[in-house]
Design a protein around this nucleic acid. Structure first.
Lengths: 211, 211, 211, 211
DNA sequence: AACTAAACGAGACGGTACGTCATGTCTTGCC
DNA sequence: GGCAAGACATGACGTACCGTCTCGTTTAGTT
């Protein structure tokens, strides 16, 4: 995944300061918390990072690209906890994801860049690769683990398996995001339990059908 | 819900031009389609509407408020079709909602104002009353109709009923939005059928438990 | 002479603040004294004048145009003193002109805008009308007065008269500017006397020839 | 006169590339013609000369110094032609000087560096030695030759001689510059003849006085 | 029919941020 | 040590919108 503007083919010249990247991304998250998306300015980010505006523009094409990168780093910490059962694993992921969305930089930035991406195809692509697909791995890993535990039967048809995984993913991610950001209600243990119950029940019912 | 700035108590003076409101809202939607949220400017909207900037500011407090109103009008057309069964009704709502989200002005505006609302409580309130609650009513109406048909048992506990309705609502709206805007995959009849199957199966399983 | 950007044909709208013009021009001269031409910035001028940068750009196209106007105001104070004889009048004008060129805002600005004008024809035209031609009037007025006094014969041939006036003008203005700005030597009473002697002697000799 | 930054005392290391100097000065003149003073940038000059910016800064302190050197080279070609009489010699110098000022790089650069020099004493000094004094020598040489021819009497008082030479120099250089750059009229043979007539007549008249 | 008070268009205004550009310095690796 | 390449901090550029303001001009509904 390449979202920063790459340095020119190295034929000479002073190399870019690697520390600046980290400082810029951290400052971006900080500024997002304090100012929100629409009041965040690249000049301000540069100042916080102790870096010139030109340095920032040399590496990122604009506000959206920078924010996507800054937020994407946060999604690296998501992982599938092993809580012993499929239901518990799902609850764990839901709560972990909700905790991430509860952080002000994430909640503000995520919706804003998605909004921008509705009229910017490359940006949508970058969001998908940098952010969204990291979560999809969790769904696949969770199913694999459940199958190893014998909680789920092996899926013989790979096409149907992919469709189901996509559906599950949209349901989980969509419900949690909607609950947290649109309904603005807490995603607590109780909600996670009820949601997991609904999801697993639905999957069982669906598995009984011909898809 | 009143989001426009109200005219002063009428003691005389020229009344506001009612046609201007419609022109402004329509121009706002048009501009959203062409420019997206971040490049939409109020000056541009005023020009398109053939109206002075002052006229616009006399009636709305800012960009977010204006866009919420402009988009809210689109949600007026949502209604619960009677397709004969609970499953068919849900599929109908899903497809209707997806069709609305397919329009560029809706998709852009919805995510953008939600993003702004993460750091603007009054705005979130306005979004809830103008937009979100219009959808939630469909869930409630759908359940009522299903109970009348005998497809669902009456819910004796109003608290549990509310919790369930909220959960269903977050799942439906969240999944459709995520599919349409983030995954950027089509919400077609097939997807709607598979999603409905999952949802109803989950509800049945959940109803068998003590919530 | 029109060097400011004119306001649009008045059909409505808030009128320009006339006081701002004076404040801007005065601030420009002040900044020229302190900073010199190349370090003068329009943002700084705007700040000094207590005016927004946009106001400044609404009225002038750029640095050169602004400085020409600012300096041109200084040339309004030049006038032909009546000192009783042609020689004394010339000496008076020379000293007056030298005093003007001695002011730091004039000396810096004049050469700089002339330099810019070498690759900017409209600017040269503006300099000529706003600044240079004001001085040429002094030559014509001086000759007229000398003719009334009987010190010079009436000039029957208008073409030759024009040529002579242009030549005199280039000699006077050029010599004073060169002495003051390039040689950087004082234009004092002694120099003025010697220069006038040379000029009048030359004119008398030239008048004896067929031009 | 040394206006380039001298290389460090030679203790070893790679010597400077002498060809680069010529390329830089030539590129400077070229860029002056195309861009004018204010739009000329050192980075652009370096690129044209096929040289790194650092090389340029290693040798010159800034834009003014570089341009003075670039233009000074042009003044090397000035010389006093022997046309047989004082009047003809003066006309020849005037035309030669005018031809130099007619070149766009000269006219632009000369005024610009003089403007900068009004607030930069070392720069003025450099201009005087590199450029102005080259012209003044022509005045002195011309007088010497005229005295040898017997057209002018020997000047017994060296102080008065210096004063007169300075005055003549300011008058010639000033008038030609003003005619060419400010009035923007051609300095042709006719003008040169009329100007010389005026000057020589003035000198004769002045010589008749006690200075 | 005249009065009155607000709406309206136009556009100036003080601000703030934009994204670009030039300056003069620095760092790196090759000659 | 010179040199090409290019990153860097700095700071001005000229533009675009912001939201407010000041005009002169409608446009009702009173009186």
């Amino acid at each position: 995944m390449q979202s920063r503007i790459p340095p020119p083919a190295r034929t000479g010249g002073r190399p870019r300061n690697a520390a600046a990247d980290a400082a810029i991304l951290e400052s971006t998250r900080q500024a997002l918390v304090e100012l929100g998306w629409s009041k965040l300015t690249l000049g301000d980010v540069a100042t916080r990072a102790g870096v010139a505006k030109t340095t920032l523009y040399r590496r990122w094409a604009g506000k959206s690209e920078l924010v996507v990168d800054a937020v994407a780093e946060l999604f690296d910490e998501l992982e599938l906890p092993d809580r012993g059962s499929l239901a518990a694993d799902i609850e764990g992921v839901v709560l972990q994801f909700a905790a991430l969305l509860g952080r002000p930089e994430t909640k503000t930035a995520l919706m804003a860049v998605v909004a921008e991406s509705t009229s910017d195809e490359p940006l949508r692509e970058r969001i998908r690769t940098s952010i969204v697909d990291r979560q999809k791995r969790l769904v696949l890993a969770g199913r694999k683990r459940a199958q190893e535990r014998g909680e789920l039967p092996p899926e013989p048809d790979p096409t149907a398996a992919g469709l189901t995984a996509d559906l599950i993913f949209d349901v989980i991610a969509g419900a949690v995001v909607h609950r947290a950001l649109v309904s603005a209600e807490p995603v607590d243990e109780d909600w996670a339990r009820r949601f997991t119950l609904l999801l697993l029940g639905g999957l069982a019912a669906a598995a009984a059908q011909t898809w």
